[in-house]
Amino acid sequence: MYRELLALSWPSWRAYRVWQRNLDSYRRYYWASLVGNLGEPFLYLLAMGYGLGSYIGEIEGMSYLQYLAPGLLVSSAMFAATFEGTYGTYLRMAHLKTYEAILATPLTLQDVVLGDLLWATTKGLISGLIMLLVLLPFGLLPSPWALLLPLVLIVVGLLFSALAMVVAALSPNWEFFNYYLTLFISPMFFFSGVFFPLTNFPSWVKGVSAFLPLTYAVALSRALTMGEVSVSLLAPLLWMLLPTLLFGCISLSLIRRRIIK
């Protein structure tokens, strides 16, 4: 594995052609996809923020709706990138043989994997941007620093796309994704500070939470939303970028092992 990681050569700008192919195919069903992207986080916002929020006082000095919004924003990007990175990648790689078809052209596997990674990131970004548009009229983006939130969405998208593509590369069948979604993504959604701070939880929960990448995304998103910006935010940013690079390389290496025979 170590040798394979070193042997990876750089992808080229041709990855853009793969991204374009995915966009062309997305055009055929984007309404259905958008409804899916938007539906769930929006429901959470409405049901928990307004419904539950009216029974809850302030959390960390803000309304519950305000507390919830930044976390749901990054979560929507996480879910969209995750689904595209798992199901979408697997569909093209194992089922439709799209990878095989593209590899017979001047593109290399690096280009194809990077193109798919950027596409899953784009899906995350689209989903997050729609969520931003929803939050705006509610007055839930009080600070001008919120203008930087799309960058956070891109980082979140890259990270969860890379993770998802590792899972897709390992997956023997569609059912395999349930493990990842149920055992990793769902718990993370609840224990990364989206819905409640972890201050009152036992220390081991906090310890686990410190390993969940969404925790850092939520912290970053909340800080920008509320305008509490400082140099210390570079730490969570780094904690997202490093694993992105690592898992990106691992996914490429695993997909190579699976595809190139």
């Binding site: 041709r14 052609r17 374009q20 192919r21 062309d24 195919s25 055929r28 439709l96 043989k97 799209t98 095989e100 078809a101 593209i102 052209t105 001047p106 593109l107």
Partner: peptide, 18 residues
């Protein structure tokens, strides 16, 4: 391994882009 998400013509055009 034609692209089932695309039409006949699109299959050729998308491939040409590669």
């Amino acid at each position: 391994n034609l692209d089932p998400d695309l039409t006949v013509l699109e299959n050729l055009l998308v491939y040409a882009r590669y």
